[in-house]
Design a protein around this nucleic acid. Structure first.
Lengths: 229, 229
DNA sequence: AAATCGAATTATGCATTCATAATTCAAATA
DNA sequence: TATTTGAATTATGAATGCATAATTCGATTT
């Protein structure tokens, strides 16, 4: 996906293709659910959302079907949609899968990323360590995600990225609901040191193991703080 | 998902909840695409499908949105839907992911499957070997799939199963389009012997490695016979 | 007062209709 | 004859309408 700055020429050629409404709606609703603006278990009223977004029910309902297939909402026949609740069982299912996917991505990334790209990850890592030292959780959280994302993308496998993203969306709420305690936070930073080192060494198998363990530890941390919704 | 035989009592209680049309349509179309009844690249005409299934465009279009999110069809703004073509790049992306997922499932299955369930896999395996000896490819293919499926389900991780299923759907066409040659077929049987042995030994790490390799080898075989559509 | 029944209301599932973008095809032009 | 233009046709995107299932809420009964 090319991301050049918008030159005038670009603006003339590309930009007309507005996304269809169902796509736009799915993206917005997905974001609202993932970010917790729509709390888990809450009834999703078609009428209310139609009014909020100023669209008819047709594209909205199309978007709801897509989100249901992603596991973000549940559709009950003739009884409307509800935001899918996250259970401990969900977390125990999803985290190991993400671990396996990240392990694969790390392994591939070691072989495919350019030196410059790895250097960019190192920059993100340093910034992340800074935000840890400053106790700035929101920034830490963003940079942490950026690093994992960079490795996923660095794998060069778009399907891998997309699959991971879908699962990450499902558990995002829990991930930042349950903040790491200071011990776990420190340990996470240390794991990230190892992640960066393995990546810089381009040691795929080692990075795979580290990432898998990292996710396992993250699950344990989340589970400690997670209360069923 | 309980699957008891339909007693009269069950029939009175459960069965009324007919699936919604969009769900039914998505399932039917998914099957048609996966099984190759709708060839890759082919335009998906809404009118034609509406007539065939006797429904209006509304639920059909809902189903199409879902299938698009699964990667089975492509939607082009104002220009309709087409069955997604499978490229070599797709296979090279999807197989390693399935390998990672099956490796995880094998690892979990070793810990969680009951002896009886493992015995059932052994039965499937023996039947599969029989069909190999008989040169019966269709039966071999079905039993092979049944074994992988049993291990996926044996992992006890429904999300893992669902994620795998979605990816498997995307590449199913290629998998049976490109039949193994006799050398590869023989090798596949041998790999399955190792799979069964590791499962019976409940040696999770070993099974994970074997399954991952198995998928890698399958990819190589498919790639040899696969011609871009 | 609590529980139950049922009419009224509301929401959902699907069909139909409308507006617009894409495509087709024949006529006009070079 | 090949190419281009544009009117007619067709298909898609989205809104509206209709039938039915679910829910609400007040009246009735115990």
């Amino acid at each position: 996906m090319p991301m050049e700055a918008n030159s005038t020429a670009d603006v003339m050629v590309v930009p007309i293709s507005r996304r269809s409404l169902h796509e736009e709606l799915a993206a917005r609703l997905r974001d609202m659910i993932v970010e917790g603006a729509l709390p888990a278990g809450r009834k999703v009223s078609e009428r209310e959302l139609c009014e909020r977004f100023g669209v008819s029910r047709t594209p909205l309902r199309e978007a709801l079907k897509v989100l249901a297939s992603e596991g973000l909402i549940n559709l009950n026949q003739n009884r409307g949609a509800t935001v899918a609740a996250l259970t401990r069982a969900d977390l125990e299912e999803v985290f190991p899968i993400m671990g396996a996917l990240e392990a694969l991505s790390g392994s591939l990334a070691c072989a495919r990323m350019s030196d410059a790209e790895i250097e960019a990850v190192a920059k993100l890592h340093d910034q992340m360590v800074e935000s840890f030292k400053a106790g700035d959780r929101p920034t830490y959280f963003k940079l942490n995600q950026a690093i994992h994302r960079a490795i996923l993308i660095g794998s060069g496998n778009e399907t891998l990225f997309a699959t991971h993203q879908m699962l990450a969306g499902r558990i995002h709420r829990a991930r930042y609901m349950a903040n790491d305690d200071s011990d776990r936070w420190r340990a996470a930073i240390e794991e990230h040191e190892h992640i960066l080192a393995a990546l810089q060494d381009r040691d795929g198998p080692r990075l795979a193991v580290i990432l898998s363990d990292h996710l396992r530890n993250k699950l344990a941390s989340v589970m400690r703080h997670f209360s069923e919704e």
